[in-house]
Amino acid sequence: MLFKKLLIKLALFGLVWAVVSVLPLSAFVDSADEIIKKVEYNLNGKTAVVELTMVVKTKRTERTMKMESYSIGNNKSFIKILYPGKDKGITFLKVDNSMWQYVPRIEKTIKIPASMMLQSWMGSDFSNDDLVKESSISEDYTKKLLEETDEEYRVELLPTEDAAVVWGKIIMAVSKMYYLPTTVQYFDEDDMLIRELAYTDIKPFGDRFYPTRWLMLPKEPQKAANKTIIEISNAVFDAEVDESYFTKRALKRYSK
């Protein structure tokens, strides 16, 4: 009886193996997958508390903001604006696919409606949607290793059929030394480059390395003069983060 079960198991296994081995490029898929997984882990960690400065440049203005961000994995994050004084205390909460903001001046919590999700976030070249969704690369894309040099991997990310992402494809260059991205290029469906994100200035934080300068360059002609720079001044990874940050009440409570 037992023997029979074992036999069935073996047979099933064999079948699975057969299927897997006829899939082409399985070796590449695996390693590209692994690269991205490592990259994601290195960028997000289990939890992260980050202090950052965001500089938004347009044709005519330059604006600097400082903020603090708390996050658990991909799904929950809380952001609080520290500078400029006028905006101090504005908080954002993102849980799964929804986003709220609290504005102390009007003492109100507002849920960002679907129609606003693709609007620019605080005038930057990131959209609200970027903040909400950027994190799920390992789930939303199929990965393919395009090229391997001494320093870098170039990985092509194609959105899966079910992924609600606007991009046609993403090409990510990953540093071999740190398993961190160096540049990420976003294309539309016609392979036209729309924007490019560059990660530089890798520094150690605790037991991990982290890029401290992120530069987002829109490539569409009408936004050619714009750029957004994020500089990380401090980061703590995998420390205990209080769950209470990720409730709607926190928006007001931690605003001060």
Binding site: S98, P113, V132, D162, A164
Partner: peptide, 13 residues
């Protein structure tokens, strides 16, 4: 994308 019945934002390609 649209707001679903639970007023969460939901999206589909």
């Amino acid at each position: 994308s649209a707001q679903d019945r639970h007023s969460d934002v939901s999206a589909a390609p």
